[in-house]
């Protein structure tokens, strides 16, 4: 398999995260949950990165750390988040507010509950424009209607004054999308865009993300538990486990040459990929993800890993580069 030289990033990446650690101090500081525990990656302009993981893997916490919207008790303990070369972790709160919604936008998991039920949708799309670009009055209204049209809402003038409960799920997705891209952000983070959605609605949503990207050339981070989303949408993939990247690389690296046992296991547990009704057992990963407040020594996946040996259980594996864009945090990555 000869690949074209992909992803040799020459220009400055849009986003570069270096050894990010975010801990949540729970139970009055007696329990430290290592939600993000040494995450590094970089995202080139116009590219789509999938951050894949199960619940508790730290994928959502990583995105919230980038935006500095941390849950209660959470603190970024170490690392850098370089956005356009500047470290977001060093910014003041008001500087961060000027970045959110303007340069980095985010779409939350469920568009149905992302809008304030008491305000008209037009107003909710208008807010970032008023805050960040100082638009008002007729200019603002025209700009919002333009945006609503751009995200594929038919008759945007008549939709402007409607309330969220008057719209379907598909429309709300688009409204939320319009609010997110209103100020022309360089980076858009989509958190779990497919959770609990029906297949056709889910597909529409992914189409919308692609459209937004095509329209504005923004870089996209998609947080998901679904490998199918990554296969459908992403250029690069990070597989997270216990707050770290178990493996990262191009989408082909991950699907065709998975080097980390966790990635390999995830790919083989996917149901429905054989002839239907064959009724054989699926491959599984035994056990449960580790407790992030009491991580085992060594590799966090070792207790569930079929290949783990004594070294895995005592020494934490570093990220081992298999080629310039593909790495895996496994002592045996290069044996694969």
């Amino acid at each position: 398999m000869v690949e074209p030289a992909v992803n040799v990033v020459v220009e400055t990446p849009v986003l570069e995260v270096r050894d990010l650690r975010m801990f949540i101090h729970a139970d009055r500081g007696t329990r430290i949950v290592r939600a993000v525990n040494g995450l590094s990656f970089s995202l080139g302009a116009g590219r789509t990165m999938g951050i894949i993981g199960e619940s508790g893997s730290g994928k959502s916490m990583a995105s919230l750390s980038i935006l500095r919207l941390l849950p209660r008790g959470a603190r970024v303990e170490a690392g850098e988040v370089l956005f356009g070369g500047e470290n977001l972790l060093k910014k003041s709160d008001s500087e961060m507010r000027r970045i959110r919604g303007r340069h980095i936008a985010m779409i939350l998991q469920d568009p149905m509950v992302s809008l304030d039920p008491l305000f008209r949708v037009g107003e909710q799309v208008a807010e970032p424009l008023r805050t960040h670009q100082g638009l008002s009055g007729e200019t603002l209204r025209r700009r919002v209607i333009e945006l609503l049209g751009a995200v594929g809402i038919p008759a945007p003038e008549s939709r402007f004054d409607q309330y969220p409960h008057q719209m379907s799920g598909g429309m709300l997705q688009r409204i939320v999308g319009a609010a997110a891209i209103s100020c022309g952000p360089e980076l858009l983070i989509a958190d779990e865009p497919t959770t609990a959605l029906d297949p056709t609605v889910q597909a529409q949503y992914l189409d919308l993300l692609e459209e937004l990207q095509d329209r504005t050339g923004l870089s996209l981070i998609v947080i998901t538990h679904d490998l199918g989303v990554a296969a459908r949408l992403c250029d690069d993939v990070i597989v997270m486990y216990a707050g770290r990247a178990a493996e990262r690389g191009s989408v082909r690296d991950i699907f065709e040459r998975p080097a980390h046992p966790y990635t390999q296991a995830l790919l083989s547990t996917l149901p429905g990929r054989r002839a239907p009704g064959e009724h054989k057992r699926l491959k599984t990963i035994d056990g449960q993800p580790p407790d992030l407040a009491a991580l085992p020594p060594g590799c966090p996946f070792a207790p569930r890993c079929p290949r783990a040996d004594d070294r895995c259980r005592t020494e934490t594996p570093p990220e081992i580069a298999l080629d310039p864009t593909h790495m895996a945090a496994c002592w045996y990555a290069s044996d694969a």
């Binding site: 379907s168 598909g170 497919t194 297949p199 056709t200 889910q202 597909a203 529409q204 189409d207 679904d226 490998l227 199918g228 989303v229 296969a231 459908r232 989408v251 082909r252 699907f255 996917l270 990929r273």
Partner: peptide, 24 residues
Amino acid sequence: QALFSARLPAHPDGAANRIRLSGE
């Protein structure tokens, strides 16, 4: 046909020809 074409691919090459449904 539309429903199953909306199924997510198992592989980056698997992105099928999706049938897009109009309306709600």
